[in-house]
Simulated assay, not measured.
Amino acid sequence: MNISHHFDDATLMAYASGSLPQGMALLVACHLHWCSECRQRVQEAEAIGGSLLTQIAPLPLDSQALDQVLARLDLNDQDVLGDAMAEEVSAQILKPQVQIPGDIPPPLYHYLQKPLDQLPWKRLGYGAHQLDLHLGGPGATRLLRLAPGVSVPHHSHSGSELTLVLRGSYTDEFGRFAAGDVADLDGEAHHQPIVDTDQDCICLIATDAPLKFSGLMGRLVQPLIGL
């Protein structure tokens, strides 16, 4: 996979620190599955974070802290706990391996559990379908499927928008994005993606605020399509 577009440093730092919303963290994890360059950058960010932690002066713990934690976990019966853990490990070992399609990163397949073409897509309009992952939190996380030649209305963003191409490709004001590429956009970005190949373009998109459509038609249909 020839990946040309990557995340900003700020996004990877936020991912490494665990401060991204669930949908955006999922999207980053999916890209990292394919992109060795961004995996390396996350490792560097984690190393920086670890170094900063070592510079924080430790605070003394209460002498009863460990006993209090164990009491809250209710670990009195270690045999029962050990048996349960052994059963869980055995179940994972004996669980049949699932063949994950190549255009779905494993972190995303955990939510979908089926190929892209078998998902319950919801029609938005001519040549456009979506699937809301209902992850909760601010914004939304969804799959968007556009037919060849179809474009998203020209828009900007109220907040941040992350897009990962799973299949096909599109072109906008920032270049051409193919499978594995990510677009990392903020409120300053204005663009109009259009599918530029003869196959459907399927993207995973995570936002933390609604889009801001520029044209009248986009603003009229926005409440209906939920973007």
Rank of each mutant, 00 (worst) to 15 (best):
M1Q: 11
M1L: 12
I3E: 07
D8M: 06
A14Q: 08
A16K: 09
S19N: 03
L20R: 01
M24R: 00
A25E: 03
C30I: 10
C30A: 15
H31S: 14
H31G: 09
E37D: 03
E37I: 05
C38G: 10
Q40H: 13
L52E: 14
T54K: 15
T54W: 11
I56F: 09
I56P: 02
A57W: 09
P58K: 13
L59E: 15
P60H: 12
D62P: 00
S63H: 13
Q64R: 15
A65Q: 11
Q68N: 13
V69K: 12
A71T: 12
A71R: 13
R72C: 05
R72D: 09
D77N: 15
V80P: 03
V80G: 02
L81M: 14
L81D: 10
A84T: 03
M85D: 02
E88L: 06
K95H: 15
P96A: 08
Q97K: 14
P106I: 10
Y109R: 03
K114Y: 06
K114L: 05
K114A: 13
L116K: 07
L119G: 03
G125C: 09
A128R: 15
L131F: 08
L133Q: 10
L133K: 10
L135Y: 07
G136I: 02
G136P: 04
G137N: 12
L144W: 05
R145D: 12
L146T: 11
P148M: 09
G149V: 08
H154D: 05
H154E: 09
H157S: 09
S160E: 07
S160H: 10
L162T: 00
L164A: 06
V165A: 01
G168S: 00
S169V: 05
D172V: 03
F174S: 11
G175C: 00
G175V: 00
G175W: 07
F177M: 02
A178F: 03
A178C: 03
A179R: 04
A183C: 08
D184P: 10
D184I: 10
D186Q: 06
D186Y: 07
G187A: 13
T197H: 01
I202A: 04
I205M: 04
A206M: 06
A206N: 06
T207F: 10
T207Q: 09
P210W: 07
K212T: 03
G215W: 03
G218Q: 01
G218F: 04
P223Y: 12
I225F: 08
L227H: 04
